Computed example of a mutant assay.
Amino acid sequence: MLFAIICTDKPDHLQVRMDNRPAHVEYLKSLGADLKGAGPFLDADKKPNGSLVIINAADMAAAKAFADDDPYAKAGLFQTVEIRPWSWLLNNPETAA
C-alpha cells in the first residue's frame, strides 16, 4: 500500500535540514523500489521547509516506523508529520499500459 509522508519543518531549522541531508537521502535510497517519490516543499524564497515522501509499506505501522527512523525526524527537524494512505491514479509507471 502507498503512503504519503507529509512533513513540515520547525521554523528556523534550515541548518538542521542541511546538516542531516546526506543521511536522509541515503536512508530514502535504502528503500529501493519501495520509494516512489520524494522531495522538499519550498518557501517563498525557494528554501526547503518540509518534505513529501511517498513509499510502499505493508501498513500504517510500517510507514510510521519508517518515518520515525528518518534521520531528519531523529534530528528533530519536523514540527509536524502526517502519514496518509495514498492512491497513485495518474502517471503511475507501474500501471501504464
Rank of each mutant, 00 (worst) to 15 (best):
M1V: 07
L2K: 12
L2I: 08
A4P: 09
I5K: 09
I5E: 03
I5C: 04
I6P: 06
I6R: 02
I6F: 09
C7R: 05
C7T: 04
C7P: 04
C7I: 00
D9N: 05
K10A: 07
K10M: 05
P11K: 01
P11Y: 02
H13K: 12
H13R: 11
H13D: 02
L14Q: 01
V16L: 09
V16E: 04
R17H: 06
M18K: 11
D19V: 00
D19F: 02
N20T: 10
R21E: 01
R21V: 00
R21F: 02
A23C: 09
A23W: 04
A23R: 09
A23N: 14
A23Q: 12
V25L: 15
E26W: 03
E26K: 14
Y27H: 13
K29P: 05
K29L: 15
S30G: 13
S30F: 11
S30V: 03
S30W: 08
L31S: 13
G32A: 10
A33C: 06
A33E: 15
D34E: 12
L35K: 11
L35N: 12
K36I: 05
A38P: 12
G39Q: 09
G39Y: 08
P40A: 10
P40K: 03
F41E: 00
L42Y: 10
L42C: 07
L42N: 05
D43C: 03
A44I: 01
D45P: 01
K46A: 06
K47G: 02
K47H: 07
K47D: 08
P48Y: 00
P48V: 00
G50E: 01
G50S: 06
G50F: 04
G50W: 01
S51C: 07
L52W: 01
L52D: 10
I54N: 05
I54Q: 04
I55D: 05
I55W: 08
I55Y: 12
A58P: 07
A58S: 15
D59H: 13
D59K: 11
D59G: 10
M60F: 15
A61W: 04
A61V: 11
A62T: 12
A62Q: 10
A62I: 02
K64D: 08
F66D: 02
F66W: 14
A67T: 11
A67M: 10
D68E: 15
D68T: 11
D69H: 13
D69K: 14
D70A: 07
P71H: 05
P71D: 07
Y72N: 04
Y72H: 15
Y72E: 03
Y72G: 02
G76K: 12
G76R: 13
F78E: 01
Q79R: 13
T80I: 02
T80F: 11
E82W: 03
R84I: 07
R84M: 14
P85K: 10
W86R: 00
S87D: 09
S87R: 14
W88R: 10
W88Y: 14
W88F: 13
L89C: 14
L89P: 06
L89N: 13
L90I: 15
L90F: 15
N92F: 08
P93M: 09
E94Q: 13
T95W: 05
T95Q: 11
T95S: 14
T95N: 13
A97P: 15
